[in-house]
Design a protein around this nucleic acid. Sequence first.
DNA 1: CTCCAAGGGGCGAACGTTCGCTTCCCGCGC
DNA 2: GCGCGGGAAGCGAACGTTCGCCCCTTGGAG
Lengths: 338, 338
Amino acid sequence: MSARRATRHVSVKDVAARSGVSFQTTSKVLNGGGSVSEVTRARILQAASDLGYVPNLQARSLVMQRTQTVGVITSDFSDHNLGRFIVGAEQEARRQGYSVVMTSIEPEGSGTEYALPAMMERRVDGILLAAPQMEQDEALAHVLDRSLPVVSLHDVPGGGVSTVGSDDELIGLLATHHLVERGHRAIATVIGERGRGITESRLRGYRRALEDAGLRFDAELVEEGGWQIAAAASATMRLFERRGDISAVFAQSDTMAVGVLSALRQLHKQVPADCAVVGCDDIDMAPHTVPPLTTIHVPFYETGAEAMRLLLTMITTGSVSPSKVVLPVHLIVRASSG
Amino acid sequence: MSARRATRHVSVKDVAARSGVSFQTTSKVLNGGGSVSEVTRARILQAASDLGYVPNLQARSLVMQRTQTVGVITSDFSDHNLGRFIVGAEQEARRQGYSVVMTSIEPEGSGTEYALPAMMERRVDGILLAAPQMEQDEALAHVLDRSLPVVSLHDVPGGGVSTVGSDDELIGLLATHHLVERGHRAIATVIGERGRGITESRLRGYRRALEDAGLRFDAELVEEGGWQIAAAASATMRLFERRGDISAVFAQSDTMAVGVLSALRQLHKQVPADCAVVGCDDIDMAPHTVPPLTTIHVPFYETGAEAMRLLLTMITTGSVSPSKVVLPVHLIVRASSG
DNA sequence: CTCCAAGGGGCGAACGTTCGCTTCCCGCGC
DNA sequence: GCGCGGGAAGCGAACGTTCGCCCCTTGGAG
């Protein structure tokens, strides 16, 4: 019944035996190196292909002391933006001949206890961090001690880690400034989870845009929407209960903007006539909401690719000095802002 | 400058040296096995933790002949549904102590040449296939020859591969039947890419529902929307140019349903008064479209988890007989169908 | 004819584990 | 007093590579 292990994997020794040379010579040929006569080389190559030889990366890693593998630690990437990011990262890794072992940590953040050890045991050559909820995680210091190259999508407590991303304050600024320019005075904002770097940065941008325009920042106009559609909708409700005069809303993500639109509909407010809405991220759905959503485009795919590129550079050059790459964003005006 | 390799990794030998025993005894202790006195055991454990010992899975795999790693081959998983699937699979793998190495093949499908060899070189214990565009890929036969356990989200040409998923014909049937029941006669459908298993199955369901109700299947009412919002929108346009009497549309995915809704809005058709819409998949956005979308719920996360569970069972038991798991779906009625 | 260089190939070791045996020592029973 | 059993620990080998070094065989130059 369970007598598997059907086809024994063929090793260099098998290939060597079939071509009548030592396995070390076989290894030389298969790696393109060494001085081996053309005829022998051909014979070996032939034998390898006859036998269907597939090199064993485990063994190679053992002696080479690197695995050609990077770890990606992420939170739930069924989130569209994170998904784009990871796809970008993975494809870049592949392009450079690296594999990616991925682990998505649970919302509760039990991730550290599992994810990090798992990567260390697998001796990944570097780690890409895309898990906002680990922002505060002290266990990362441990990784840094081991001087493993790490690139992150967000800031890391101890510092010393390279980051790649867009300027979140600028995002908040652009979005809010656009509304100010359209003549809005009472501009509310639905923000993400309080305390997160991204939330606070985008909020700072919002605030700066107001102050640049001589408007007063008013905490009453800020409401937490927790990145979820439904939560953003009820945040919007709370805002309008408090202040009937709101004429524009900046949502800190397009997903939340959908919730905002949903709430406004329930309140029988016309968008943008009664209330304008601006989101950010530019998800696929953005052009197809009702009305189409004005937003800030954030290049997630490119960010992922760039982050991986940076990580691989760190790995191959052995450079460990942290850097910071900022990718450009831009405003996309659609109907929701009039 | 590039003088890295700062902290040499500590091995069992280091731990052994520090605790004054042979490294083999150390190995025994670290794996919980063997007969070792309490005092020695404690000493070794202490040394291991002092030194920060992290076992090397590469080396272990080499001798154990299994890697505790599964490969996931997928198409672009920034697609929300695929994302959910993968997250489900990854989390189940983790629960059972397996790691996941993931590769997303490019749309053009150059994937096979890279993805498969990469997994084989890494000696994954099994492969999870979630790449609809590889449905027709013959190279998979190769994998099967090697008798590597494989579980797929879709059917594979040679057969002999276990699949996990929902009954797509039933999905089409439920959605269409719902519209029939609401009294619609001219029911159009916007379908995915022609020739794909999922497309044809859901179409078959659509057709059966019509015929069950004594309605004639009419090719004129079928239009290809290629899974994209925009493409689905223009498909809808084409449908209405051809047939003004359409009173309901079944979209083969919620994403396409968004496109359908968008097109109907452009045509100044009220939903559901002038035209009802039903989608399927039940994406997060579904309750928040305008109007909220009636859809068939498909349990992607669960499908992923179940697929991984099946794969791991195959791996651990060595069983290789292909099976087929079907997960239930159900209709969720919202405003878009009246 | 001798010497040397260089091309072609082999050998041993190492990477970090696990596993099956063997060895040692101690205490106990006959 | 002798032998035996069993617990504790060590030893050697193997997994599949890569790498540095050595050895042999040519052939051409001095």
